[in-house]
Amino acid sequence: MFQSIEELVNLAENYSSVAEMMIQIEMENSGRSKEAILQQMDDQLKVMEKAVEKGVRGVQSVTKLTGGDAKKLASYLDSQETLSGTTILTAVRNAIATNEVNAQMGLICATPTAGSAGVLAGVLSAVTEKLKLSRLQQIHFLFTAGAFGLVIANNASISGAAGGCQAEIGSASAMASASLVLLKGGTAFQAGQAVAITLKNMMGLICDPVAGLVEVPCVKRNALGASQAFISADMALAGIQSVIPPDEVIGAMKQVGQQMPSIFKETAEGGLAVTPTGKAIAAKLAANPQKTI
């Protein structure tokens, strides 16, 4: 098993693709058949697709704090020429949809976490539409993302409580950007560059959920994490390289996560959670036994 991006990139040369390498390693580690592993990934993909569909139709969270924004974006996309383009905005719409379903206590697939579940689902569904991907290509996209995600999880963190939001939306966006690069015919090395480019921009992002809920700002951070994956991927495909190599960026991300005060690590004691509006929402929810606003 690869321990770093460098090892991942080198090891991938022995396989037909990063996805195929991940599948083979999963088979060796779990003793399960290729069919069973592909089937499980297909099942995860089905959950992602259903969450997107449900969210785009319009949902409201348990607290009524979030919901309905995916639907707004859907009408906007349908009605006019947009500034940032259809593919990115479709990804953004679907990312929002997924996290609105998550906040509603609906069924989602954590990628790598529930709070960041919209990024990969949003990016994959949008690029599937744009490039008319086959089912197998979509499944491979997820194995590739998982491979890069494993390196980040084992060398830094994918937990907001341990590493801040950089560990959640940052990791998710980096994984998505790496998969996009390989899907578009880029190399594993370029995918690693996309990971570095993405994580450098996410570095230091704090986890400051209003009232301790996975709603504000999480839903919108998923939207922007999805959009960033496309930009990083395009930059890497253009041949742009990160001056700081991806493994060093991940090392820095780990350090930043450890140095980050705990008020910024999913405790709702800092950042947006303690703005006047953030505090007012928390107080209102605490006073209401129905836990709605």
Binding site: Q44, G106, I108, C109, A110, P112, A114
Partner: peptide, 13 residues
């Protein structure tokens, strides 16, 4: 890989 792509779960965290 399913530690990263998964679990499928009821939200929110």
């Amino acid at each position: 890989v399913f530690d990263i792509i998964g679990p499928t779960m009821i939200g929110p965290s």
